[in-house]
Design a protein around this nucleic acid. Sequence first.
DNA 1: GTATATACAATCACCCATGTATGTAATAGG
DNA 2: CCTATTACATACATGGGTGATTGTATATAC
Lengths: 203, 203
Amino acid sequence: MRRTKEEAARTRRAIMAAALKTFSKHGIARTTLESIARAAGVTRGAVYWHFANKRALVQAIRDDVSLPLIDQIDFTLLKQKDVPPLERIERFLVGLIEAVEQDSRTRVTFEVMSFKCEYVDDLARELREYSRKNDRLRETLVKVYTEARIGMRKGVEPELAALETVTFLAGLLRLWLMDRHATGVRGHARALIATHVASRRAA
Amino acid sequence: MRRTKEEAARTRRAIMAAALKTFSKHGIARTTLESIARAAGVTRGAVYWHFANKRALVQAIRDDVSLPLIDQIDFTLLKQKDVPPLERIERFLVGLIEAVEQDSRTRVTFEVMSFKCEYVDDLARELREYSRKNDRLRETLVKVYTEARIGMRKGVEPELAALETVTFLAGLLRLWLMDRHATGVRGHARALIATHVASRRAA
DNA sequence: GTATATACAATCACCCATGTATGTAATAGG
DNA sequence: CCTATTACATACATGGGTGATTGTATATAC
């Protein structure tokens, strides 16, 4: 029963959505392609048609949220020259939190990648990529902090400040995702970000 | 061939060591009890004798490093009343980094728990426990920061400062563990910690 | 209009991990 | 010195997932 190209694209998205949901419930490793297919209302044949294997599926889901996010990051940090640099950094951090707050697909994908994924064998390279992304972000932040140096406290080196912001972001995202009942970081994310950025500002 | 109690304890430790090594290579999910047994020079019978199943093994490995670490934390932060509070916090952070730097068992265990473990089904409670540990650490830090208030910059609330330190620590550990080739955070951990604590100090 | 590629479904063969049950030798306890 | 328990090894039963193959109806291209 061959479907229209449009219908095929829809089943592809349905498989990805079902996979994400199942990954979130049972983790990537314990999720079988059969269960994904069932959740998507298709058979394993369809899954294997659209994706070579589970790893390719994971990759597709991952890219689906991370690629547009990266574009947005570069835009916020580098292109908005009319916004003062420190405020650009604050907006960037707030923007990321808002992304996971508002878009459930982004949030759940991050949850899966953070807590329900074993970075091993073939997936180990994903971790290295993540590391490189962090490094590129750090370099970008160095530029922005250098640009902002006039309004910053003395003794704050752009390199260290950038590294600390990357560190802060990594921890913030992790704790935000872990705080399911909003008793900890979730309620204070914006205040935390404000404090973090404010600690660079000159008095 | 029944062994002495001492020998039995040794095989138990050998199994845990072999398991940790294999978990680190292939992740928890893809590691079979058979491969652990082989790596430890025993059979699956021995593994099942000492541990009910894989989950119990993971739990044992985890507790083996985290329990003594927690004791040390409380001591450093609360008992050392002769050390000024902000310095206690710095020592605490440095102490954790030194623990993962110097003890390979601690380091690899953290690596496995951070990047090679899916927190799902039965293991989901481990994540909640980790969350609670973070929360207790936050409360402890609130006390220390309150004690340190005299020497701190104005406008720095103990609650937010504590939350930010927990956030910083989570990110620091994660990035430190990810930085396998010591090109990023690993070389600057102490400087980062110093900067973080310094950002609370009054000028 | 027909051929071919598409978008799946259905079936098959295989391996592999788990849990449990049983065997066994030595040791610790009395 | 004797017995029950310990500390494993060995053997067995079972289920479940994967990848590949085959089948098939229908778009789509020509």
